[in-house]
Structures are given as C-alpha cells and as structure tokens.
C-alpha cells in the first residue's frame, strides 16, 4: 500500500504509511505529557493520507503509542469521523439533527440519493467520486440545512444549490 518505496527512514516494507506520515506520527509522540495522547492525532494523520484508517495500520500505530491493535480498533470505531472503509473523493455529510431537519435536510438528502444513486452510509459511486452520510449537529444550525464535504462547511443548502454543487464537484475531479 505504501507509496514511498525507497525512502531510507524506517522499514518501509512493514510500515503501512508513507515516510512523511511516519515522521509526523513520531513527532506527535513527544508532543504530549503521555504518548497515549498521540493516538487520535495519529489516526487523523493516517486518514489524511489514506482517506480512511486501514486495518493494517492499527497494529502499527498501536505499537508507536504503546497500546494493542484491538485497543486502536476500539478507538477507531468509537469516533464517527474515522472511516474504516474508503469513502468517495467527495464525502458529502448532511446534518440530520433537529434545526437542520426543520429547515429541510431530508429533502436535500433524498435529492442527493436520487442524483448519485447511493445511500447514506452505503457504497461509493462507481467512479469513486461521491459517498453520502448523515451526520449529527455540525454546530452550524444558523446555516441550516447544512453539510460538510470532506472538511469543508457547506451552508444553507436547497435543491438548486445542491445541483450546482454537484456540477462543480464533478468538474473538479
């Protein structure tokens, strides 16, 4: 999986992340009074590189911070932002909680479902471009109904804006 064949730092063959991610994780280990605190930041780095947290990285990162692969798995599954499978290049997360629902989030999701042919929490579109997910209150209820696409906030959706957004994202790839 590792794209960085040939870097001298560390045994790249057994290291399931790039040399750069490996280096950044090592930096994290001394950032906190206890190295256990580096786990969640390290998982963020892994997901940044891979798009998700692959099974084979769990033992690797666990060893760095001093916990078992099973412990890492428990942490990964507890936090909703960590994906255990690849998501689309554009991972569209629609807020489902009350203020957004009062302002029409269901309509937006149904529209996206139809346009993309995938279900929230389900598969990725065949071209790998899009996936859908319901998420809980994004702390942006003044912009309801709202979404996040990857890490970007998307305020005040309606059907027309949703269509325009899909066009734009399709153009981007």
């Amino acid at each position: 999986m590792s794209p960085d064949a040939g870097t001298p730092a560390g045994p790249a063959a057994t290291r399931p992340v790039s040399a750069e991610t490996d280096r950044r994780i090592d930096e994290l280990l001394t950032r906190f009074p206890q190295k256990g605190s580096a786990l969640i930041p390290a998982l963020h780095l892994i997901q940044e590189e891979k798009g998700y947290v692959p099974e084979e990285t769990m033992g690797y990162v666990g060893e760095k911070v001093g916990v078992t692969a099973a412990f890492v798995q428990g942490v990964v599954t507890f936090y909703t932002m960590f994906h255990r499978r690849p998501v689309g290049r554009h991972h569209i997360q629609i807020c489902r909680t009350l203020s957004c629902m009062l302002r029409g989030s269901r309509e937006v999701m149904n529209h996206l479902r139809q346009r993309l042919g995938v279900e929230p929490g389900g598969t990725v579109t065949p071209d790998g471009g899009f996936s859908l997910e319901w998420v809980e209150c994004l702390g942006a209820c003044d912009t309801a109904p709202c979404a996040q696409i990857n890490d970007e906030d998307v305020p005040l959706l309606d059907l027309r804006k949703t269509d325009a957004l899909l066009e734009k994202l399709r153009g981007e790839r």
Partner: peptide, 26 residues
C-alpha cells in the same frame, strides 16, 4: 496545545473529554 476530537457528542462531557485527550474512547 490544540487537540482535535474525532466525532463524539459525549466528549463534551468533561470526564469523557479527559479520556479522549488521553487517547481512549470517550
């Protein structure tokens, strides 16, 4: 030191927040 959570409402509860900061489930 900034510390980024990873999606869990319960981590706003103060002791869950501490657990999360220690690298555990909240």
């Amino acid at each position: 030191i900034p510390y980024r959570g990873a999606g869990a409402y319960i981590c706003g509860e103060e002791t869950a927040l501490l657990e999360s900061l220690e690298g555990k489930r909240g």
